[in-house]
Amino acid sequence: MALDKKIMERLVEVVGEDNCSDADFVVQPYGKSLDSVSGRQAPAAVVIPETTEEVSGIVKIANEFKTPILPRGSGADLTMGAKPTKDGVILLDLNKRMNKIVNIDFDHMVVTAEAGVQWGQLITALLSQGYYTGQLGPANSATTIGGAVSNASVGGGGETMFAGPGRLVASLEVVLPTGEIINTGSAANPKGKPWFGGRFLGGPDLTGMFIGDPGVLGIKTK
């Protein structure tokens, strides 16, 4: 089912014409993922944001037009969460442009990364300096950090010793279903540091709400 022309025009205003398409040859590949059991359903349009603010803008447009959205990482998913299950869905590809490692603080052993960073990409960056994530990554090295956290995934290479991706998260930047942007855990304090206190300091564990939620409660961007 094609999206209303007005919706497409608004999405183009947010991400640019090159990063928004409803062309069949663009949307069809997003109708499948590593999961091969649940069938195939292509989205109505694919949008590729670059910033958290763009994700927020897309969510607000979807709310305005009452159109379902689906965040997706690399598609290395085994739980049917990376492809639509109905017609008329706007799919947000968070892997293609939101894939930057923002900072690696070796002194405090904390990484700040966008949700579209792939596990193999992060491991390579750390190994070059003699560090390691504590696991090889869920599913495979193509799994994104956002996808691993969203599915509370498990992976080999040391997880039983160092804990899974969800337990390693100190904070999250999340776009709520309203389009509001929030920071949880150690990032909730604007004067704090990413490493200070972890996610359990200063109140309830709001970070934990978004771990294992498959993007239902909010879209993780960092």
Rank of each mutant, 00 (worst) to 15 (best):
G212L: 03
G146M: 04
D4I: 00
K60Y: 08
L3G: 10
S56W: 03
A113G: 05
G31R: 05
G134K: 12
W195Q: 04
C20E: 07
A23G: 11
G57K: 07
T143L: 06
A125H: 02
N63A: 07
G75E: 15
A42S: 14
F25Y: 14
Q28K: 15
N103G: 00
A2P: 09
Q129G: 00
D107W: 01
G166Q: 08
K32I: 14
A76F: 06
G208L: 04
I101K: 02
G208A: 15
G73W: 13
G155F: 04
S74R: 12
V12R: 14
G179N: 08
V55F: 04
F200V: 05
V14C: 04
T85E: 14
T79N: 15
S38C: 09
D93H: 07
T67H: 06
G197S: 03
G158S: 07
I101Q: 00
G185F: 04
V117I: 12
T221P: 05
G208V: 08
A152D: 15
K191M: 01
I101P: 00
V59R: 08
L126Q: 10
W195P: 02
H108R: 03
K86L: 07
A23H: 15
V169L: 03
E54I: 06
N103P: 00
D213C: 14
I69M: 09
T160A: 15
Q135G: 13
F25Q: 12
A113F: 04
M161N: 14
A2E: 10
V174W: 01
S186A: 15
V14E: 14
N103Q: 01
S153F: 01
N151L: 14
A187G: 00
K5T: 14
A44E: 06
T143S: 15
T184S: 10
I181S: 02
L206K: 03
G158T: 09
D205M: 02
Q28M: 13
S74Q: 12
S21G: 11
S21Y: 06
C20M: 14
L168W: 02
L201I: 14
A148P: 09
D4T: 04
E17D: 13
V46A: 07
A152H: 13
L136C: 11
L168G: 03
N103T: 00
L172K: 03
M1P: 07
P68H: 06
V15F: 03
V26D: 10
N63K: 11
M1A: 13
G88M: 10
V47K: 09
G215W: 11
T207A: 10
R40V: 13
S186I: 08
G192Y: 02
V37G: 02
F106T: 01
I182R: 01
V47A: 09
E17T: 04
Q135K: 00
I7K: 10
L136F: 11
L136A: 11
P68C: 09
G88E: 08
V55K: 08
M80P: 10
T207E: 04
K100F: 00
P84F: 04
